[in-house]
Design a protein around this nucleic acid. Sequence first.
DNA 1: TTCCTATTTAGAAAATAATCTAAATAGTTT
DNA 2: AAACTATTTAGATTATTTTCTAAATAGGAA
Lengths: 93, 93
Amino acid sequence: MAMSDTLKAISDPVRRQILELLKTKPYAAGEIAAHFDLKQATVSYHLKLLKQAGLITERKEKNYIYYDLNASVFEDVLTWIYSLGKGGNDDER
Amino acid sequence: MAMSDTLKAISDPVRRQILELLKTKPYAAGEIAAHFDLKQATVSYHLKLLKQAGLITERKEKNYIYYDLNASVFEDVLTWIYSLGKGGNDDER
DNA sequence: TTCCTATTTAGAAAATAATCTAAATAGTTT
DNA sequence: AAACTATTTAGATTATTTTCTAAATAGGAA
């Protein structure tokens, strides 16, 4: 649940795409899997990592499991990145 | 050199610590290695990845190689993270 | 030139991560 | 209950990453 998990989670392109998909609305696991050329079990594995990192939440409905984005977890990452912006570098914003 | 490389680079705790070290001033490869319980060759490998990601620059002086932080590369990452902050989430800032 | 010192590169080994197949779980519908 | 649908879990396999040892490079000092 620490920043370390967040960064690990978003270091994988598949997981980033999942987050981007969930940007607009929640999707069921199967719907998410349909977007990738991967087995459902594999996507389920990625969802588990995202969930562990706190980047998504799940909600059961019927026999579906809907996943939703939780971008608030990025706060620590943003803080860390900004902390690296010292006053000596040539061309940062 | 894309965001993908940046995120891969900072997904490793050793590399994050290296960046934190370089926050204040440039250090020679050997000085950086001294901060870790790892072989110099291993640290050199991490420096190579950070360099490839554009997160550090190098400058030769005598037979030392000084590494310096380049945090400007984070711009894309910040943009991506912010793009995930849609208007529907409960508690983001 | 020969000897140091700093660092990287090459290649192998160890550790971790991503993917697949097959089986298990769980809730729905009939 | 039995059959169906959605999804996860277990275990094996493959791929990628991290680390190490040993050798190579390169520049400075004797």
